[in-house]
């Protein structure tokens, strides 16, 4: 039982939890304690040293008459953002109550009519912005995967297809999101001119998502092609002798065998996508974390720098979590890892 839980934790990349778990169960306590200290203690020491140096140096540096924000100021900024968030939540509750009252007062009006009369106009909260960013990056990532995986399979199966697609990979892969953005913005702007700004498919959202797609597509494409090309020749011979046919060969043999590599590509893709997203949101004004950073940059309040630093940390932590999720998914589809758990 314990071993199974530990295996799951390892597969999911949650290795940190293994030593405390084993210690609680009284297994190899001394050894696990040592391991735990190494795994948690060392990074913790490094973080403390970093915070201390940051604090000391920040106190010395003055920019335009202000000190550079240190950990204290950044924590304060985060606290302020949290209070803003609570205030806006309270605000929303009041609005909903008012709306419900209005509904009972004017039963003859439909809900949509009433919403138009008294819309909720508050600015998006920080959590809303995080949510928007995640939605955008996922949209871009899903589109990228839907394009890259079939194309990658094609490239991996046929050398001719690879030769044809390779030049595009080589030329377009290094293109910066900042170069794609104007093109995408113009095309999307022209084709989606009638879409209202507050709909789900707002232009800024589509532009940011498409830029994410264009930049993150390549890693999945290349890895899928590699994974498919490296499928054991014996397995392909088995597929031929069993008469699996084209469809059966791809779905029963090629894909399961290439899955770990495909997931590796998708992991790289989502990393690239998340990095690119912030720039894309700044320029396309998609109301996510990128726009938050940009708005802070444009405003000139005392805590601008501290707020941006909070955003940077948020972006980093979310990127880290996305990466861990992808690693866990990749391990789950790798033969040997999950198979051993079952």
């Amino acid at each position: 039982m314990l071993n199974k839980i530990i295996l799951y934790l390892n597969v999911l990349g949650l290795t940190w939890f293994v030593p405390p778990l084993k210690m609680v169960c009284g297994q190899d306590v001394a050894y696990e304690a040592k391991r735990f200290v190494r795994m948690i203690g060392l990074p913790l020491i490094a973080v403390v040293i970093f915070l201390f140096l940051w604090h000391v140096i920040a106190g010395q540096v003055k920019i335009k008459g202000q000190i550079l924000p240190g950990p204290v100021e950044v924590t304060a900024a985060a606290g302020k953002m949290y209070r803003d968030y609570q205030a806006s939540q309270a605000n929303y509750v009041t609005y909903q109550a008012d709306f419900a009252k209005a509904q009972t007062e004017y039963p003859q009006m439909s809900e949509t009519e009433l919403r138009e009369l008294m819309p909720y106009t508050a600015a998006p909260t920080y959590l809303d912005q995080i949510w928007t960013s995640l939605k955008t990056v996922f949209t871009g990532f899903v589109i990228a995967s839907l394009i890259a995986i079939p194309l990658g399979i094609l490239c991996g199966m046929s050398a001719a297809a690879f030769e044809m697609i390779n030049p595009f990979i080589q030329v377009f892969r290094p293109v910066s999101p900042l170069a794609w953005l104007p093109i995408v913005a113009i095309i999307v702007g022209a084709t989606m001119a009638d879409v209202p700004a507050n709909s789900f498919w707002a232009k800024s959202y589509v532009v940011a998502a498409v830029v994410v797609t264009l930049c993150s597509l390549w890693a999945t494409l290349i890895n899928t092609a590699n994974g498919v090309a490296q499928v054991d020749k014996d397995y392909l011979n088995v597929a031929k002798v069993l008469n699996l046919g084209w469809f059966g060969t791809i779905f029963k043999v090629v894909l399961p065998s290439a899955l770990p590599q495909i997931f590796n590509g998708m992991r790289l893709s989502i990393g690239v996508g998340w990095m690119v997203l912030i720039a894309a949101e700044m320029l396309s004004q998609n109301p996510g974390l990128g726009k938050f950073v940009w708005d802070m940059y444009q405003s000139s309040s005392d805590d601008t720098l501290a707020l941006i630093m909070v955003a940077v940390l948020t972006i980093g932590v979310i990127g880290f979590i996305l990466d861990r999720i992808m690693i866990a998914l990749q391990r789950m589809v790798s033969p040997g890892a999950m198979l051993a758990v079952r």
Partner: peptide, 28 residues
């Protein structure tokens, strides 16, 4: 071309590792 009438037992078993024993036979 290969046909199931001429079945091959391969040099290194060539079982699909993501399928169980019966899963491998069922594929055929």
């Amino acid at each position: 071309r290969p046909v199931p009438e001429r079945a091959v037992v391969f040099q290194n078993h060539s079982l699909l590792p993501w399928r169980t024993v019966i899963g491998n036979v069922m594929l055929a």
